[in-house]
Amino acid sequence: MQPILRLFLVKNSGDLARFGVILALAGLILFGALRYENFLSPYNILSFLRYNSMFALIALGMAFVIITGGIDLSVGGTAAMASVVAALLSPYHWAAGLAGGMAAGLAVGALNGFIITKMRIQPFIATLATMLAAYGTGLLLADNQSVSVSYDTGFTVIGQDDFLGFPIPAWIALAAYVLGWLVLQKLPIGRHILAIGDGEATAGLMGLKVERALAGVYLASGTLAGLAGVILASQFGAGQPTEGVGWELFAIASVVVGGTLLTGGSGSVGATLAGALLLAMVFNILNFENGLGWISLSAYWQSVIRGAFLLVVVVLQAKLMARHRST
């Protein structure tokens, strides 16, 4: 049991807040199981995991960026562009589509890292610029329309098939999170990333290779966004150049709900996953509630409710952390 808890928690003052998101997720699952007949049905569980694996991947990349004290606004545009690239390459081979989409994400991540570390541009401005560029590139490549993928090369298996009864996208996300946990908790680069978040100048004085670590973090974020784009194209059968709007906000919200401070210096990979699942679960609950007929909320109202839910969770976590520090 202890190794599982270590995946979700780190030993600092934010542990209590991060444990809170796990309790909230468990509470929502219990509520849904008691209220809705098919909430725990295999169809709902597998569909939930298959679809939300994309958001979990971009949240993981965002967690590493925010731990360093940065921000990556380009993940949504990167995923949209990568989905188009993957769709265009899918007729050649499923591996070509997968590699092409991830390479597109890696290219955006490399550009972000270069602008931030070498040109000394603030991450907010740098990634805002690359977000716009990524959306524009995707629209140009797609000629402002969806791009159908090939169904003959096995590319759709990535997003639509299962392995050992579990959706392949969920396996991919799980593997990414295990690797992310190992990097952050077990490897020296993880300690460097945390140190940079505590203070970039101080980390430099300690002899840490700050620029290399920052570039690696943005490379990882871009690559994970590219992988999310591959899953998007494979799952829906088309590259979507207009998708990804608001994905960066979902990723940031997942990281914050998971207890990671926007100022950087601390964070938890497992709590980020719990945060992403928690926000996704809110939508799932609302969809079931619509199905009961007691309420009828459009997607717009669902966004309002999820935003309010995020605000409540953040306020509660802030109070928990303040109380924890005072004791």
Rank of each mutant, 00 (worst) to 15 (best):
Leu214Pro: 01
His324Cys: 05
Thr68Lys: 09
Ser90Phe: 11
Gly77Leu: 11
Gly70Asn: 09
Gly239Lys: 08
Met321Ser: 10
Phe124Gly: 10
Ser268Pro: 06
Val269Met: 01
Val255Ala: 10
Ile168His: 06
Met119Phe: 10
Val108His: 05
Ser268Leu: 08
Gly258Met: 06
Gly246Thr: 12
Tyr218Glu: 08
His93Trp: 12
Leu140His: 05
Val245Ile: 13
Thr272Cys: 15
Leu5Trp: 15
Gly259Val: 04
Trp294Val: 08
Ala215Cys: 04
Met281Leu: 13
Phe283His: 13
Leu132Asp: 02
Phe236Gln: 14
Asp161Phe: 09
Ile295Arg: 13
Ala104Cys: 14
Ser266Tyr: 04
Gly229Asp: 01
Ile66Thr: 08
Thr202Trp: 00
Trp181Val: 03
Asn284Gln: 14
Arg120Ala: 02
Ala134Trp: 02
Ile305Asn: 03
Trp94Asn: 10
Phe8Thr: 03
Gly70Leu: 03
Ala173Gln: 06
Gly69Gln: 08
Ala176Arg: 04
Gly190Trp: 04
Gly136Cys: 11
Leu34Glu: 06
Val84Met: 10
Gly291Pro: 03
Val149Trp: 07
Pro167Gln: 10
Ala103Tyr: 02
Leu249His: 00
Val183Pro: 03
Asp143Gln: 14
Gly14Trp: 00
Gly291Ser: 05
Gly270Lys: 06
Leu310Lys: 08
Phe48Val: 00
Gly190Tyr: 06
Leu182Met: 12
Arg323Tyr: 11
Asn12Val: 06
Glu289Gly: 11
Met321Ile: 06
Gly101Met: 02
Leu205Asp: 05
Tyr43Asn: 13
Tyr36Asp: 07
Leu40Met: 15
Thr202Phe: 10
Asn12Tyr: 07
Leu214Ile: 14
Ile196Leu: 00
Leu219Pro: 00
Thr242Phe: 09
Trp171Asp: 12
Gly275Ser: 01
Leu30His: 07
Ile172Val: 14
Glu248Met: 10
Arg323Val: 08
Gly267Leu: 09
Phe166Asn: 01
Phe155Ser: 01
Leu214Glu: 00
Glu37Ser: 15
Gly70Gln: 07
Ser90Lys: 12
Ile231Thr: 04
Asp161Asn: 14
Ser298Thr: 15
Phe166Gln: 01
Gly101Ile: 07
Ala225Trp: 02
Gly207Arg: 06
Thr202Tyr: 10
Tyr151Trp: 09
Gly307Gln: 12
Ser266Val: 02
Phe309Ser: 13
Val65Asp: 01
Gly291Leu: 13
Leu205Trp: 09
Val149Asp: 04
Thr156Glu: 09
Leu232His: 05
